[in-house]
Measured scan of single mutants.
Amino acid sequence: NMTTNERRVIVPADPTLWSTDHVRQWLEWAVKEYGLPDVNILLFQNIDGKELCKMTKDDFQRLTPSYNADILLSHLHYLRE
């Protein structure tokens, strides 16, 4: 019986294949993992993996503070390698 913190996010390895639900799961995981403040996951609700991967730093900064944008982008970049 796992707690929420221990729950593994199971999403496709390639972020471009993510559904909007996968994006939400990834964001929820990242918020907990990195202790990100002020991430409004609802702002990302219509973004799927293909859109997420096209987003620039400016795009991320429209949805979340700069600090969060940096961490989310670097993790996304890591996943795409």
Rank of each mutant, 00 (worst) to 15 (best):
F44C: 05
N40C: 05
M2W: 05
H75F: 02
H77V: 08
N40W: 02
P12I: 00
D70F: 03
S66T: 07
M2F: 09
H77S: 10
R24F: 05
Y67I: 06
D38C: 04
Q45S: 11
L63P: 02
V23T: 05
D70P: 03
R80Q: 14
T64N: 12
A13R: 13
D14V: 01
G35V: 09
L63A: 04
E6C: 04
P12L: 02
L63G: 02
F60Y: 03
G35Q: 13
D21M: 08
M2Q: 13
V39E: 08
E81K: 09
N46C: 09
R24G: 08
S19Y: 01
L73G: 05
N1L: 10
L43N: 10
N5Y: 07
V11Q: 11
L17R: 13
F44S: 04
P37K: 14
G35D: 14
M55C: 04
W29K: 13
R62W: 04
S66H: 07
F60P: 00
K50A: 13
R8W: 00
N68K: 04
L17C: 13
P15M: 02
W29T: 14
V9Q: 15
E33M: 07
I41N: 06
L36P: 00
V11G: 13
A30Q: 11
H22W: 02
V31M: 11
L36M: 10
S74G: 13
Y67L: 10
F44E: 05
K57M: 06
P65G: 11
S19A: 05
M2G: 03
N40H: 04
G35F: 04
E33Y: 06
K54D: 12
E81I: 06
Y67G: 14
D48S: 09
V11L: 14
E6A: 06
E28T: 10
S66C: 11
T64C: 08
M55D: 01
K32G: 07
G49Q: 01
R24C: 09
V11A: 15
G35S: 12
V9R: 15
A69P: 07
R8L: 04
G35C: 09
S66Y: 05
W18H: 00
P65L: 06
R7S: 09
E51Q: 11
C53Q: 04
N40M: 03
A30L: 07
P15V: 04
A13Q: 15
L73F: 14
T16F: 11
L73P: 02
T20V: 10
M2T: 10
R80S: 07
A13P: 15
I41T: 10
Q45T: 06
L76I: 13
N1F: 12
T16Y: 12
A13F: 08
D14C: 08
N46M: 04
F44Y: 08
D59C: 13
Q45R: 09
W26A: 00
T56I: 04
Y78M: 15
S66N: 15
E6D: 08
D59S: 06
P65F: 15
N46L: 04
L52T: 00
R62A: 12
Q25T: 11
W18R: 01
H75P: 02
I47C: 06
D14Q: 03
Q25I: 11
F60V: 08
F44K: 03
V39C: 12
R80M: 13
L36Y: 03
R7C: 07
R7T: 12
F60H: 02
I41K: 12
T64G: 06
G35L: 09
M55E: 00
E28K: 10
A69V: 10
K54R: 09
L72S: 01
A69Q: 02
L43T: 14
N68S: 12
K32S: 07
L43H: 13
L17M: 13
E28S: 07
T3Y: 06
Y34N: 09
G35E: 12
W26K: 01
V23Y: 00
P15A: 04
N5K: 12
I47F: 05
D58C: 06
I71V: 14
T3P: 06
K54M: 12
W29C: 12
N68I: 08
M2R: 09
Q25E: 12
V9I: 10
L43Q: 13
I41R: 05
Q25L: 14
L52Q: 00
L17S: 15
R8Q: 11
D38K: 08
W18K: 02
T3H: 07
N40Q: 06
N5L: 14
P37M: 12
D48G: 07
L17G: 14
V31N: 05
T4Y: 10
D70S: 07
G35T: 14
E6K: 13
E81C: 09
E51I: 03
I10D: 15
T20I: 07
P15F: 04
T16H: 15
S74T: 14
R62T: 06
S66K: 09
T16Q: 05
V31Y: 02
R24S: 11
L73M: 12
C53G: 04
H77M: 04
S74K: 14
P65W: 07
A13H: 13
T4P: 09
D48A: 06
N5Q: 10
